[in-house]
Every structure is written in C-alpha cells, then in structure tokens.
Amino acid sequence: MNSTIQNIYFRSDQAKAYTLLSPALILVIFAMAAPMIVMIFTSFNTQISMIEIDRTFTTGRYEDFFSKPIFSMLLFRSVKISFFVTLLTLVTTYPLAYYIAFYVKKNKMLWIVLMTLPFWTSYLLRVFSWRVILGNKGVINSALMGTGMIDEPLGFLLYNQAAVIITLSHAWAAFAILPLYVSLDKIDKSLLEASYDLGNTKFETFWRVTFPLSLPGVIGAILIIFIPTVGDYVTPQLVGGTDGRMLSNMIQSLFGRANNFPLGAASAVLMLTTVCLIAALVTYITKKVSMRMS
C-alpha cells in the first residue's frame, strides 16, 4: 500500500520530467538520429546518375573508400591535424587559465570575457584573416620585406598543415580556456599551501597537486576540441592548400561537384566512427588513470 503510493508519485514525477524533455528529445530524434540512420543506409547505396540513387544494398562505397588511398590518407590526416590542434591549444592556453585562476585577483570575469570574446566573432572572417596574415602578400611577409629582412616572401607560411593547425588552435582557444580555468579555479588554495608546507617546491606542487586536480578540465578540453575539429571544413579550405586538405573537403566535394552522395555518406560514417572510437579511448584511459591515482 505504502509502496504503491510512492510508485505513483515517483512515476508521475518521471512523467512530468519526460513531458518537459519531450521537445528536446523529439528534436534530437527527428533532426539528428533519424537523418543519421538514413545517412548510414545511404552509405550502402550507389549513385547512378546526377539525381538517381540505386537503393540496393552494397558495401561498394566502403570498398571504394578503402581501395582509393586518398580517402584513408585524408581521414588519417584529419585525425593527425586535430591531434596537434588539441595539443597546441592545451599547451598554449594552460598557462593562461593558470594565470587567471591563481594570479588575477580582481575582475576575473573581465579576463574571461576578453579571452572568449574573439570566439563569438565570425568564424569565417577569423579564418580568412589568417590567410591575410600568412599569405605571400600578407601581413607577416609584407612586414618582413618592408623592414628588409627578406627579399622574397616566405612561401611556406600558408597552404600547409601547419597553417591549418595554427588557425584552428586560434579558433578553438576559448573551448580550452574555459574548462581549464573552471577546473583550476575550483582547486582549494589551502591544498597548495599544504603541499608547500610539506616541503614541496612550487614546481613539484604543480606536478603533484595542481595538474592532477585540473585533469577533468584537461579531458573536457581535449574532447571538446578534438571531436569537432576532425570535421572542420572552412580552415583547410581557406589556409590548407593541397597539403592541408582534410576529409571534410572531400566529403563536401562528394556532395557538390563529384555528386556521389553514397560515398560522401560512407566517408561521414567512417569519420564519425573514428571520432567515437578515439573519444571512447580517451575516456577509458582517463578513467583508468584517475582510478589508479585515487
């Protein structure tokens, strides 16, 4: 008797909660899950003309993907570039987040706003701006030539993987600063004082206390930068050249000029699978490491 009343209360709470959640879940189901399922089905089809697709089941598109080395190469390169973007962004923003968390006393909010503001201004224009900075007639080259330090523009600045990595790292900085700052700011300062008190130097304290405690922020930043950048299209297109092309550029052309929807879908499926596997791996390793630490 007692438990049935509770069950009704409990169930009605669940009913209310899911009524509130239903618009969001319907959105995710119809605008993401269903299209993805159709995308997976399409990846097993064949394009036969400009507008016609043969719906018979075939693994042909996946065979295409793996038989032409360019596809695997682009997928591998996308992952590689994202890996370096993530690494570079983490390494360059960690000191910044550290400084704001521990040294900035007043107006922390202002610092955070200033650090994240560029993120909101047009992504396209920011990437384009890097082309202007790195180009043959760009800011760096014209400045160097103007001062007479070089006679000919440095051609290696633009249209390569390094340019893509620098530009993406600039574009995604805010996504690293925020989680890093939050995890560093949460650290109880008395823990660090305790570490000094117990005889550790500042350096030792950082590696033995601060850094391990900031790991949740590091992991958050890794996932939130690595996953989306694997699929970035604008940056490689604008500053990557042939050397910096990524899988997204190929996917786009398969839905554009090349007009091969099934192969494009297969490429997207493989990109998603790769990203999921890597994300799962990162999460798994983190769990193992944090379990061993505790």
Partner: peptide, 18 residues
C-alpha cells in the same frame, strides 16, 4: 550531442534525408 559531434556529419545526414 549535436553540439559536440562534427557539424559536417549533421550537415551530411540532413542533406541526405532531406
């Protein structure tokens, strides 16, 4: 999820279903 996974995948999925 839509916030995390590469946008191009959502774009591809939507263009295919549409």
């Amino acid at each position: 999820l839509p916030f995390i996974i590469p946008e191009i995948i959502i774009a591809v999925a939507l263009i295919v279903i549409w």
